[in-house]
Design a protein around this nucleic acid. Sequence first.
DNA 1: ATCAGCGCTGGACAACCTGCTCAGCCGAGA
DNA 2: TCTCGGCTGAGCAGGTTGTCCAGCGCTGAT
Lengths: 155, 155
Amino acid sequence: MTIDELDARLLELLARHPRITVLEASRRLGVARGTAQARLEKLMARGVIRGFGPDVDPAALGYPVTAFATLEIRQGQGEQVRRHLAGVPEVLELHTITGEGDMLCRLVARSNADLQRVIDRVVGFEGILRSATAIVMENPVPARIIPLVRAAARD
Amino acid sequence: MTIDELDARLLELLARHPRITVLEASRRLGVARGTAQARLEKLMARGVIRGFGPDVDPAALGYPVTAFATLEIRQGQGEQVRRHLAGVPEVLELHTITGEGDMLCRLVARSNADLQRVIDRVVGFEGILRSATAIVMENPVPARIIPLVRAAARD
DNA sequence: ATCAGCGCTGGACAACCTGCTCAGCCGAGA
DNA sequence: TCTCGGCTGAGCAGGTTGTCCAGCGCTGAT
């Protein structure tokens, strides 16, 4: 119910060469085309691969500033707050969390000044009691999955 | 130097239908194939689309627990800490931030118990002074980009 | 007003890939 | 020993890609 070495190598190939074809992948993996095709289908069927959505860079869209906001929510207002935040395009991700605060969201903005506008919009909702924002300066480790895939393949 | 309505619709199509072909996309967009092809190439050349990496679900890989850790770093140890964290496969993302703490990282683990092992490994490095972990319970807004694309297209 | 540049259209071509099917082979487990 | 599941190598029709080309309309510059 986990992945093997071949799956891992296939995922690596797909990650490294965006629009590689199944045929080309099978050649590089040294297996028959049918095998590569079957593996890929199974990975998708099992939900290991959710999709191949285009990886869009917000910075190239004019939103070079990223920030994380921790939100404290008024009791029982969770549902309304979620809907509110889902309606803000600059909210790229939202999690409910344990510990300090109740929610954590990833935001983007056109500039540091523009971030103020985004935050005002985010917290401008009665269900949100408090918020703390951390602006991202550098991104030493961009979103990655390959090292984990390799680790998962080793068992 | 930004994107127009057609670009936005193309991105939406690509996001919604993972492995759609350029030809099929051009049909749905109601434009000539060459146009869709040229737009796609430009979006990639401009860096708007970074790639089409497979979207791998850590949960399906056996890592259903996600957490965010805020780290406080000893002065001048930044570089070593980055290298240390880059070597931990369960660290999916790392940012340096302003405000409380110096770094924020996204972690995954096989279970809540396993999270302890991951955190021990993350924090078991002399350059890291303190850490605070928030476990993700729900993910009301999964990573998304389309609403932002739509907003960017409106100007 | 005229011209050049640019993007879009519609069409064409060879080369390639996909989805599907089939027979044969091999190792693991009952 | 038999069966099942996964892999191989091969083939075929149909769709897609990369790459041309000529033509057209709009926009900005001379």
